[in-house]
Design a binder for these strands. Sequence first.
DNA 1: GTGAAGGCTTA
DNA 2: GTAAGCCTTCACA
Length: 941
Amino acid sequence: MTSTDAASQNQKLLLIDGHSLAFRSFYGTPVDVFVNSQGQHTNAVHGFLSTLLSLIKSEKPSHIVAAFDLAGGTFRTEEYGEYKGGRAETPQEFLGQVELIQRLLEQLNIPSVTVERFEADDIVATLAKIGQQEGMEVEIVSGDRDAFQLVNDTVTVLYPVTTGPSKGIRRMDPAAVEEKYKIPPHLYPDLAAITGEQADNLPGVPGVGPGFAAKWINEYGNLDGIIENKEKIKGKKGEALREHLDDVLRNRRLNRLVDDLELPITLADAAEFGPRDPETLNELFDELEFRSIRQRLAEVFSDLAQAAAARIDISVESVQTIESAQEFSDFVEGALAAITAAERPVAVPERLARALVLYPVVDEDAAEAGNAHEQNLTGAVLLGGARAGWIKFAEIDAATEKALSDWLADENQKKIVFDTKLNVKSLAARGFRLAGVVEDPVLSSYVCGHVPSARRRFFEAMMEDLTDAYLRTEFPKAEVKESAQGELFSLEAEVDLEYVALVARYIQELAYALHADLAEQNQLKLYEEIELPLATVLAQMERAGIAVDSTVLAELKDHYNTFIKQATEEAYRLIDHEVNLGSPKQLQAVLFEELELPTTRKLKSGYSTDAESMADLLTRIDPDSKGAQFLLALQMYRDYTKLKQTVEGLQKATAEDGRIHTTFQQNVAATGRLSSTDPNLQNIPIRTEEGRKIRGAFVVDPRTVDGQQYSTLLTADYSQIEMRIMVHLAQDEKLIEAYESGEDLHRFVGSEVFGVAPEDVTPEMRAKVKAMSYGLAYGLSRFGLSKQLGIPVEEAAQLTVNYFKRFGDVGRFLRGTLKEAHQDGYTETMFGRRRNLPDLGSSNRARREAAERAALNAPIQGSAADIMKIAMINVAARLEAEGLKTRMLLQIHDELILEVAPGEEEAAAAVLSEEMSRAVELRVPLDVQVGSGTSWHEAGH
DNA sequence: GTGAAGGCTTA
DNA sequence: GTAAGCCTTCACA
């Protein structure tokens, strides 16, 4: 193979018929969504760029050229005045968009070629020929069928289909053309000459379509052959052909593409595409008011840049074992100096230029034996650049431990830590305090929109996913070898130093890439002022846990069990046999076959047996019937089984210290909320009296631990925080006033919507507007509202109309939120937290509408989450600053639970309610309700 | 053992 | 209609 062959081997030339793609994009992208504030429509520009980016990503061209038509005549109009005549006038909204596309292409360094008196097609044909001669693969993006004549083994036409079900790019290779037209591509112009081309205003032979044209071509070889044998063609169609032969010949002259034009560019000019100057490009995007697509563009081109650059090895140079205080300080100094010296794929962000990776290493054996909520540490890896140090806790003297301890607690010694919350806990268990964490990939990736799926929340999976996404390489997995017995076991019992140091190096490179992404997305503030400090607060809460009274739990379990037994026996008696009441499948057989009850809503297989369906069934059947009695027994069985399971879960989760230590997930909820697992303490029952009893088992710790006692539990919750945020964001003066006056909001809204005095608002009216108001924050539809309230859809629709008539600002706010979300592809909370919603662009209606509801809710729910997080940080800081021993234990979205030290009751209540209500200043007051008692049940009253 | 389906709890 | 987590059953490895 010669060197030229090698060079051209992977070269691919992408040719774009600019006007054609612009037009296709115009009709394939909603026109009313893409308008900038100057009133310039930009939908064609957006669609064009979007297609271009997908093509660059999927086709990986080495060269790109766009060809455009010029205004004014071409050699074709000179020959035939009506060529392309009779077209509808260009839509008003399309005007100016081609110029914008050309400016965009210029910024992307993609040549836009025009030639006087010729069309874009001719330029494309010329370039296709040149590319082919150079041995390149050629792909032509064009919605003009004339381009099909260029198709051969190395030239493909990518034909955009912008509407209909088969939306996307159709790849027209020789086989595809032949399949569609039953003739080889080079004969396509012969066929088109006969049938004519409506789009070009070229009439063909009347009554002859592509079927007959193809038949003739196959019979006589080509158009010339047909003309030679024209007398042999019989019937009306033969007659019509002979009559319109001049048209056919003219069509054939006009649809022949010219492939030997003189062009103002060479192929070399097409090879250097990519953003020219980020600032100018951003200015153009600002002008277009495009947001989300910038990210896509950056991704596409950073992929290219990374693929083009030689892959940089992520490796560790040396691992030094640190055994003395002197070695420790020498190492820290050396590692800090090594940061900038190391070779790496990503530049070091300035804020991380003097930060070392801290990677505490878990003792696997001890971890399995000990309790799960704290890891047992065997030592720690420190790393700067490619230099690693290893400190084994068991093998250092007091002076070394002191040096390490001081370094960990010094907030001026900056650290990069993967999972701050976990490591603050683990280090605390060993008596170390951790401060100065400036980067945590768990949190930065979350803020950047990376929400790990439930199954990929563990360390290795996250490292794999983030390494793939940000470093474009593979994360090396821990080695697992087979033992002689064939069992799999990890070799990490004896710490594999080389490996853990390498992991630290990957954490470092991820930190750099993620931190840069944070800065780019303008989210450093949210990250540094909320998420990072919150991690330490949460670590303290998890470490504290909440005390439970195991006697109460045991009694509750017995209590619930008696009802379960009663319900089970009653159910069996009614149907004369046993059945597993926990099995929906078996229940279906009993209810709908044996008892022949009316059917409920359909599921994938069978009919629903859920509580709502059962309640509905009860209203439809004779209350004295066997069926009704069975349903009542089932309801009781379900209610009490659920409660018993909850109690059992809590019993299992109670640690040796008599407390339950939940884990707060800080990086899994799409809106910015926390979640709680192992066990979930955010869904402890409250709505029924029987369920509420479980809250009585959560108590203030009766014991004295390390000389510390506690006297009460203190709870505080925000009242109607999401409604208040909606009113604030919508700036609805009437609702703001209602909140300021301290009036019952739903009563006020009810009086407005139903046009009665506030005192005349009935409970039904109040319930309706309350559901409506909350529905708004959930992106409600009139169908959802009608179902919720059990009223006809028309009444729900009328209610909505009346609501927005009175509170127009709320409607405007919601519409504006949706429009912005569509434009940007994401929503933002008051503090700039983003939620990406790629499904807003889905062609699947159900998915799109679900994304729209999420878009309406995310800014509201997310802002509430932000506010609570700020309050938590401030509460923790105030408690510490005032030297109080009172501590925070739980957060349940809009509620905080504190354990109060004796004598601090008043001070703690003041701190809590003050910090919660002043976490943010809104146009409406943030009411906080406080309660206290010796149990959660009592405090919640 | 694993994963989906169905069901239920919270804010 | 939003956002979560956890339980049991059942079919499949």
